[in-house]
Amino acid sequence: MTGLKDHLKQKRGSIVPKWLTQSLQAYPGDASGFYLREKNQFANPVGSSFAEVVEKIFDALLEEVEVETLQSALEGVIKIRSVQEFTPSQAISFVFELKQLVRQELNDELSDPALRGELVGFENRVDQLALVAFNVYMSCREKVCEIRVREVKRRVSRLLHRTGLIESDADLEPNGPPGNGSRPYPNQGGSR
């Protein structure tokens, strides 16, 4: 008997492109067309990031990896959305769209009760993924605030030095130098 995973593998060629298209249709008309059309990753970082990430996430969901391990993949696109003109719900809505797509694509097959049971499990994992996506979104927003503060300090760094308000440049970086910071996501942060 064919399980959900096999069905999803068979339909991968149709689900993944549709998921990508739907994700990019969140942008106004001309932009979504451009993001879908332009394949050069440097001319179109938004479209190519989405193309890479939705594929990676779909395959990972099929492989049943721990959803938490998909943080960095999600960051590839949520980092972009979190500074674009989206509300938080709009920014991560593409995760939920996968559920609907899978149901549409497997419409006929889902008459099989066993498959429907498996689908509940799959959809739970997508929901968990959405929760992780929210963590990633929040951590990106926090990062924006942090770098804004650091930028303001850098702008007047000489004054801060001279007045003794900071002793070294390291004082501008409460979490260590940018880049080494790799600040944990809220759900990993322990003290949070």
Binding site: A26, P28, T87, S89, Q90, S93, F96, E97, K99, Q100, R103, Q104, N107, L110, P113, R116, G117, L119, V120, N124
Partner: peptide, 24 residues
């Protein structure tokens, strides 16, 4: 909840997950 019968398949399909947005 979380059993298949809890969800009516057609109703789930009809959910519009796209948050409302204005026309630019």
């Amino acid at each position: 909840p979380d059993t298949m019968d809890y969800y009516k398949h057609d109703e789930v399909l009809d959910i519009d997950y796209t948050p409302p947005s204005e026309n630019w």
